[in-house]
């Protein structure tokens, strides 16, 4: 069994992957596009660096994707060992040169928000571990001692339906209260250790939130919701959050942010894949086994008083069970 950590790096000045496409109001395109573009950039960068040190450049190489270090086994891509890195049994895709300084100013100048997506493909029992891992990666990336807001998104929850009242009702039966409360206690622990100053939830309707609040020790200060027509907050939810002093924030993420098939495509041998996984037909070139996504974390660092996003990106954790 092997563990993979995927990362996007800072996507904020990265171009097209940050732009919301019309009609794609709620999608994971930002994640998948920025992963893909980071893989490609890493393949080019590290392969080019390798090339310079080896001096094996072919004179016709023009620096485009797949120019140097062609490897027939990986479909013309530079081999994975060049641009990924394995440390302590974890494969980093791509490899990460941890920055000496994450943010340009001292951390107190920033408002750092983290949103952790628990995925339906991962075992519930490991959620405490995932929360710790994900937050560690973000803190390391940003060079910050703590985040300001840590939002948790549980699988299987949404506001669906045309009428927002209806959405709020349906929401009541979604997810799994017990599992969510169990995971929350791990998140509370991160808060107690001072790593997350405030906690938040996503997609909790009025009834679920009401039940949740009765059972937790550290209360969420934020509930992030996605509404088709954002001006119609279900009145019970508006009332409850107002009474409880919980801020209702907007988001446009989808809950199932990294389905298994999407991950396979991203890392697979096909067109647009990174060539980390073996070709299932030929069995050649890469890792074998069943890959499942475990969690995704999104982080954003905004300069206080200036409203400038300095750093934004994602990490994703996945597990490969060799078949």
């Amino acid at each position: 069994m092997a563990k993979l950590i995927l990362s996007t790096g800072n996507i904020v000045s990265g171009g097209p992957s940050i732009i919301r496409k019309p009609g794609a109001y709620r999608s994971n395109l930002e994640l998948t596009n920025s992963l893909r573009s980071n893989f490609l950039a890493a393949q080019q960068d590290f392969a080019a660096a390798e090339l310079r040190s080896n001096g094996t450049a072919t004179p016709t190489s023009n620096g485009d994707a797949g120019g140097p270090d062609l490897d027939a086994e990986t479909g013309g891509r530079p081999s994975a060992s060049v641009w990924t890195a394995e440390e302590n049994g974890v494969l980093y895709v791509p490899r990460i040169d941890w920055p000496e300084e994450g943010l340009q100013e001292e951390p107190a100048q920033y408002n750092i928000t983290v949103k952790l997506f628990f995925l339906p493909t991962a075992p519930v029992s490991k959620r405490p571990q995932y929360a710790g891992e994900a937050l560690d990666l973000v803190l390391k990336e940003l060079g910050a001692p703590a985040v300001d807001l840590f939002i948790v998104s549980f699988p299987g929850m949404s506001f669906e339906g045309d009428c927002e009242w209806e959405a709020d009702k349906q929401n009541s039966a979604q997810g799994n209260d017990e599992e969510e409360i169990a995971a929350w206690s791990a998140v509370e622990e991160l808060h107690r250790r001072g790593l997350a100053k405030k906690l938040g939830l996503a997609e909790f309707g009025s009834e679920k939130l009401g039940r949740f609040l009765q059972k937790v020790q550290v209360r969420p200060t934020v509930d992030q919701i996605n509404l088709k027509n954002c001006c119609n907050v279900p009145p019970p939810l508006a009332k409850l959050t107002k009474e409880q002093g919980i801020e209702l924030l907007v988001h446009s993420d989808c809950t199932d942010i990294l389905p298994k098939g999407t991950l396979r495509d991203l890392l697979g041998p096909g067109l647009g894949g990174a060539g980390i996984l073996a070709d299932p037909e030929t069995g050649r070139g890469g890792l074998h086994g069943d890959l499942s996504p475990q969690w995704v974390v999104k982080y954003t660092a905004v300069v206080r008083d200036r409203g400038v996003i300095e750093n934004k990106g994602y990490f994703a954790g996945a597990e490969l069970v060799e078949g």
Partner: peptide, 9 residues
Amino acid sequence: RSSRGSNSG
């Protein structure tokens, strides 16, 4: 890829 952030610093 290695560019760290925009220039908000």
